[in-house]
C-alpha cells in the first residue's frame, strides 16, 4: 500500500496551532498560526500549587490540550470528527481507511516514544499533536509542526505513542475535518476568540487561573527560598520558565503570539485600536522575558540584588498589572462589537 496525500506542511511555534492551521490549509482555509491561536483562545495562565508533577507545582500558559482545535473549528462553522479508541487494532485500521480516502488525520500522541523528536524533549508528556498524511508499507508519513519536514514513523511506534501510558492518556485520539463551509465570518470568529480570552484572564473566580493566578504565583515565589530551600526554589522557578518558553510558546508564554494575532486582526477588521492593544501586549511579553532573564541569573547564582525572589515577585506583580490593563482595554474595544 502506498498512499501519500499531497500535503503542504508548515512549521509552527506550537503543535496544536500548527496542526489546526495545516489541516485548514488542506481544505483551502489559509489562516496564520497567530490567527488560529487567537480565534482558538489559546492564551491563558494557570498556576496550581496543589497539583504537582515530579514534586513541582503545575504552571501553564495555555488552556487544556484539544481546546484550540475545537474552538477554531466550531467558531468557523467547520464540521469535524473526533474519536478515541479502546481497541488498538481498530484505531490503526480506521486511520488507514481515512488515509486511503485521502483525508489527513490529526492525532494526539505521547512524546516519550516519538523517535524523531529531540531527545531532550522526550518526557512522559501525552498531549502532542501530529498529522498522518500518508502510508507506505508499514511506515506513516507524519506532518509534525515542530519538525522542518514530513517525518517517517513505523506503525509499531505510531501505535505505541497513540496509546501512550501515564497522565492524560491519548487513547488513540484522532480527529479530522469533515466539512468546510463555503463562506464564514472571520470577524465574528475573531471577536468570539477575544471575548473568551478576556473572560478567562479577567473573571474566573478562582485564585489560580488567569490574572489572579499570576498574582498567587507572585505571592508564593517570595516564600519559596525560605520554605523550600535554595535548590528546590530554583527547580520551582525553572518550571515556570520552562512552561513560559518551551515547546512552542513562540516566546514569553504565548504573549508575543497573541500580540501578533491582535496586529493581524487589526488589519483584517480595519480597527487601529487593536493594533494599539497589540503593542501593549508586546510590552507585556517583554516583561515576561525580563522575568526569564532574572530567573536565569538566579539559576546561575549571579543575581545582583539582595533578595532575588522578592524582586522576581515584584516583576510578576508588575506583569499582572500591565496584563490586566491590556485585557481591560481589549475588553472595552470588543464589548460593543
Amino acid at each position: 500500500m502506498e498512499n501519500k496525500i499531497n500535503f503542504n506542511h508548515k512549521m509552527s511555534a506550537h503543535c496544536e496551532n500548527g496542526v489546526t492551521a495545516n489541516l485548514l490549509r488542506f481544505y483551502g482555509i489559509e489562516l496564520s498560526e497567530p490567527m488560529i491561536f487567537g480565534i482558538g483562545s489559546g492564551l491563558f495562565f494557570f498556576y496550581m500549587p496543589l497539583i504537582k508533577m515530579n514534586g513541582i507545582p503545575v504552571t501553564s500558559f495555555r488552556p487544556l490540550p484539544g481546546l484550540i482545535f475545537k474552538r477554531v473549528t466550531s467558531r468557523l462553522g467547520i464540521k469535524v470528527n473526533v474519536q478515541q479508541f479502546r481497541n488498538q487494532k481498530k484505531a490503526m485500521q480506521d486511520l488507514d481507511i481515512l488515509i486511503q480516502q485521502g483525508i489527513p488525520v490529526g492525532m494526539v500522541v505521547g512524546v516519550y516514544d516519538l523517535t524523531y523528536f529531540p531527545p531532550a524533549y522526550r518526557f512522559r508528556f501525552n498531549a502532542h499533536n501530529i498529522i498522518a498524511v500518508g502510508k507506505e508499507n508499514t511506515n506513516y508519513y507524519i506532518s509534525d509542526p515542530i519538525m522542518e519536514k514530513i517525518e517517517l514513523l513505523n506503525s509499531e511506534d505510531l501505535l505505541k505513542i497513540r496509546f501512550a501510558k501515564g497522565t492524560y492518556k491519548p487513547k488513540g485520539k484522532m480527529y479530522y475535518i469533515k466539512n468546510v463551509p463555503k463562506i464564514f465570518d472571520i470577524n465574528s470568529a475573531i471577536i468570539k476568540g477575544m471575548k473568551h480570552t478576556c473572560r478567562d484572564m479577567l473573571t474566573i473566580p478562582f485564585p489560580y487561573a488567569g490574572l489572579k493566578g499570576i498574582n498567587t504565583l507572585a505571592k508564593h515565589v517570595k516564600k519559596w527560598p525560605e520554605k523550600l530551600g535554595e535548590r528546590k526554589a530554583k527547580l520551582y522557578l525553572g518550571q515556570v520558565v520552562r512552561m513560559q518558553e518551551e515547546i512552542g510558546t513562540g516566546g514569553a508564554g504565548f504573549r508575543f503570539l497573541y500580540a501578533a494575532f491582535l496586529q493581524e486582526s487589526s488589519k483584517i477588521m480595519n480597527n487601529s485600536d487593536l493594533n494599539e492593544i497589540s503593542e501593549q501586549m508586546t510590552e507585556v511579553g517583554d516583561l515576561w522575558r525580563e522575568f526569564g532573564v532574572a530567573a536565569g541569573r538566579i539559576f546561575k547564582d549571579r543575581y545582583p540584588g539582595e533578595k532575588p525572589y522578592d524582586e522576581v515577585s515584584d516583576l510578576l506583580l508588575n506583569i499582572r498589572k500591565k496584563e490586566e490593563n491590556t485585557f481591560k482595554n481589549l475588553n472595552k474595544i470588543i464589548k460593543p462589537l
Binding site: 515530579n54 531532550a120 518526557f123 530554583k234 527547580l235 525553572g238 518550571q239 520558565v241 520552562r242 518558553e245 518551551e246 526569564g292 532573564v293 530567573a295 536565569g296 539559576f299 546561575k300
Partner: peptide
C-alpha cells in the same frame, strides 16, 4: 535561550 536552556537542563537533572 540561556534561561530556558538552564531550566530544561534542571528538569533533566531531576
Amino acid at each position: 535561550w540561556e534561561p530556558k536552556n538552564i531550566a530544561l537542563k534542571q528538569a533533566l537533572n531531576i
